[in-house]
Amino acid sequence: MDSFSQVILDGATGTLILALVALGLAVIFGLGGVLNLGHGAMLTLGAYVTWACQMHGVPFIACVPIAAVVVGVIGLLFELAVVRHFYDRPFETLLITYAFYLIATQVIQIVWGRAVHNIPNPLPGNVTIAGASTRVYTIVVCGVCIALLSLTWLVMYRTSVGTRLRAMLQNREMASLLGIDASRTYSAIFATGAALAGLAGALISPLFSASPDMGSLWLVRSFFVVIAGGLGALVGGTLLGSAVISGGTDVFSLFTSQVFAQTVVFALAILILRVRPEGLLRKVPAR
């Protein structure tokens, strides 16, 4: 059953990579309430910073955190300058982040050109697990994803920061009474989400290369992860949503055409939204 274990492995790695990509979006949407249409551009930015950094002779392992920091800082500046004035108007934040997407994508092309840039695989070679094969680097990226998700879970449920964040999610006014500086918290959330997007972009760049439109390809899929995973249930929701979207597409496309598989999975996500508007894992409505 080589083929079976291969499907399982590909499904698992696909799920984790999508979860990694979607995590930044889920953080900004779930905690900040902003539907970040600029998420795709942040991914792209992360990949390009990684590529540019490597071109200057910096080793890949150092470029990844640099990309995360650079994109995080850009996100922070954008939040401080623009987004923070619009938290009470979700549609406006959506438009603003779309403007960010338009501007960032174009700046990327002007600065770095339009060519697809290949980022060499830092860990060449394949690994075989129970008869199924994948790249060593893919396994490492999945490991990083698991680590990040665990860290997010720890921060959210085992630290005082997490308690405050959850308090703020439940009741904004109560949180401010408790002395939580909402403004700073939102800045931090946005910057963290941006940094996560940059980190994801950097990490997936050796797998998919850097091209100016790479972000829009992932953006829609990430949105579906958020649909299926639901608001608030950050770690479990993102993981489950990714499994539905990524694993679902792969499994369905084994039996039918790729196109039909994609349609079925997207329809499935809408169905999940209808049955469990707050996500697969969430039982209590957020509001």
Partner: peptide, 29 residues
């Protein structure tokens, strides 16, 4: 189907995004 379940706001925006994507996928395929 969705409004009955009180799906609204940003979630409905996501669904309409899905409509676009599915529409495009069907038109392509």
């Amino acid at each position: 189907f969705l409004f009955r379940a009180r799906v609204r706001g940003s979630y409905f925006v996501l669904v309409t995004l899905a409509i676009s994507t599915i529409g495009g996928v069907i038109a392509t395929s």
